[in-house]
């Protein structure tokens, strides 16, 4: 059992890592760029940069997930 399951290890680990990492990206994107938008909104006195940041951040996250795990 030791020998056979040893060969499988990179694949199973990588798949789990991809799933959890994608989840973290989807949180980070809107958080980072939405947060940046909020700060810019405060600074410039506007109100459209927060939603733009959230949507843009989400788009960037999805692009990154596709780029990392979907495109090759």
């Amino acid at each position: 059992m030791d020998g056979s399951s040893g060969r499988r290890e990179p694949a199973s680990g990588r798949e789990a890592d991809q799933a959890w990492r994608s989840f973290a990206y989807l949180l980070s994107g809107p958080l980072l760029y939405g947060g940046g938008g909020l700060l810019l909104d405060r600074w410039l006195g506007t109100s459209f940069l927060l939603p733009v940041g959230i949507v843009g951040g989400m788009a960037l996250s999805i692009y990154l997930i596709w780029f990392r795990y979907g495109s090759r």
């Binding site: 990492r21 973290a24 990206y25 949180l27 980070s28 958080l31 980072l32 951040g57 960037l60 990154l64």
Partner: peptide, 12 residues
């Protein structure tokens, strides 16, 4: 993307 990765690793 670098910022996104950084925040993911350091914060999220």
């Amino acid at each position: 993307i670098f910022l996104l990765e950084l925040i993911t690793d350091l914060f999220t």
